[in-house]
Write a protein that binds this DNA or RNA. Structure first.
Lengths: 185, 185
DNA sequence: GCAAAGCTCGACCGATCGGTCGGTTGGCAA
DNA sequence: TTGCCAACCGACCGATCGGTCGAGCTTTGC
């Protein structure tokens, strides 16, 4: 809290004038970020097109969001997999949970539509959503390890563009070349 | 440290007889876990077969590891994306880093071999590794959110089996049905 | 049988943490 | 001009944190 106060040009005790507890402040930050995410992802889907086109735009939009403020991706991942240490029924936290639920529901719908139209393979939708999260958010939250694996900064514009292409190529083609060879056994 | 001491039937001060600092203990735990991971993943690759077969076994082995002790997946993800808060040049930490490097090198080699043989599409190898980590480790570290998305416990044996199949199907086929339709523009 | 080494513990420490409180300031409405 | 209130601050607090220390107990080696 002292560090935060310093960086915003206040003293610690002043922060407690705006947020009653640290947890409330944290929830407000997460909620605000999720608000941006919901807005942008909704926009990306609203432009219409086939399910695959919408999914591609969804991925691009999510990656753009992660890149816009690198710290956000870390915070997102943390808030996703850290079971709310305080599980508190804070209103901001409840609101954030609802936002997250709506975001996931939208992704679910895109996949469902695509499968109904035959554009998307009949995969298990919840698992696919988990995979999408893992592929997009984890990558930009992977910090030092990610930079080491990739070789340059994962946030370098050129590398971000490459990530977008690789993710979409992964979604479109998988990894294995000849899809016919694996259904043996 | 008190909680750890309680769960192992000691007092806090006794822990400091075995580990000089908390950071050293943490590094030792991570190192031990990475040791198991390295061992199992190396075994999964040593059995031979085509690159795709080895990759499939690698995924199965990694998922088995995440499931064996649920807490490990959380710890793994944390240790991966948290930039070593103490960056300390602790010997255990250095050793863990080297283990991680060898694990990643092995995955890199499988992908390289598969591409050389034409079994695997010519994708960007580092990005593909990041995707593999995201798909496997994130899922089992996703805690409450994961359970909510999936609908049941992500660690339920049936659900774990489904995850293995979904991940491998993803690797083999991607998501989009007709790979020919997307190379327009 | 005895000393050394290994292990455990309670008591204690300084630092830091989240948070409180009383009081000052500045702007604005009446 | 006055009164009010949001914003801000310094001083302070109890709790907890990681860690130390010396005194006992137990095991090992010879």
């Amino acid at each position: 809290m002292s560090e935060i106060a310093d960086t915003v040009g206040l003293r610690k005790s002043s922060l407690f004038h705006h947020f009653r507890t640290k947890a409330e402040m944290y929830a407000a930050v997460v909620n605000r970020i999720l608000g941006e995410v919901e807005l942008e992802l909704t926009r990306s889907l609203a432009k219409g097109g086939t399910a695959v086109e919408r999914l591609d735009r969804w991925v691009d939009a999510l990656i753009d969001l992660m890149v816009r403020t690198p710290a956000h991706s870390r915070l997102m991942l943390r808030s996703l997999f850290e079971d709310d240490e305080l599980s508190g029924a804070l209103p901001e936290q409840r609101e954030a949970d609802e936002r997250l639920e709506r975001i996931i529901l939208q992704a679910r719908n895109v996949l469902r539509d695509g499968m109904a139209q035959g554009e998307i393979r009949a995969a298990n939708i919840p698992h696919t959503i988990q995979s999408l999260i893992g592929i997009t958010i984890y990558h930009f939250a992977s910090g030092d390890l990610g930079n080491e694996i990739i070789g340059t900064s994962i946030f370098a514009p050129k590398e971000v563009e490459r990530r977008k292409q690789e993710v979409k190529a992964f979604l479109h083609h998988g990894l294995v070349t000849n899809s016919a060879t694996d259904e043996h056994r």
